[in-house]
Amino acid sequence: MARMLSGRLPDPPAAVRRGPPWAGAFPSTLHDQRVASLLGIALGITFGTCFLTGLVSHFMQHPPNWLSWPSRPVWLYRVTQGLHVTTGLASVPLLLVKLWTVYPRLWERPPVRSVTHALERLTLVPLIAGSIFQLATGIANIAQWYRFHFFFTVTHYWVA
């Protein structure tokens, strides 16, 4: 089983092979794993805080029966929701720079090396798409710009 998952898949035929657009297409040394991981830590903190405070807000508005929110401290929701919106906004430049740092990997060759590698790459699709979606719709919501035809809070929660 393990061998099947990590066994090397055959390379695609040479005629369809596509690497980076040209040799040396990404000369910047900032396409670098150390830069990416530092940005990852920063994003982990802002996105993590944003996610947890988002859950607080969701369950405050839709409390299950077993959960009763306290009425004190009176400023609790003010702090959690302020953090939610602020960390979400701070995530925007961090996410953009992080995606720029790692985007040469899109042209990785061969595109899939093994089944696990394929799964690894596929799971990034919903992760990246979801992150961009959450930040974009969140910003539209705080600006009260409801151009999308779905109910914001429900979609925002389920995508999270």
């Binding site: 690497g19 980076p20 040396g24 297409a25 990404f26 396409h31 040469p104 899109l106 990785e108 060759r109």
Partner: peptide, 11 residues
């Protein structure tokens, strides 16, 4: 170096 095994993400 042109983006082989690790893409261009240099380790």
């Amino acid at each position: 170096t042109a983006g082989g095994r690790e893409g261009n993400l240099r380790r």
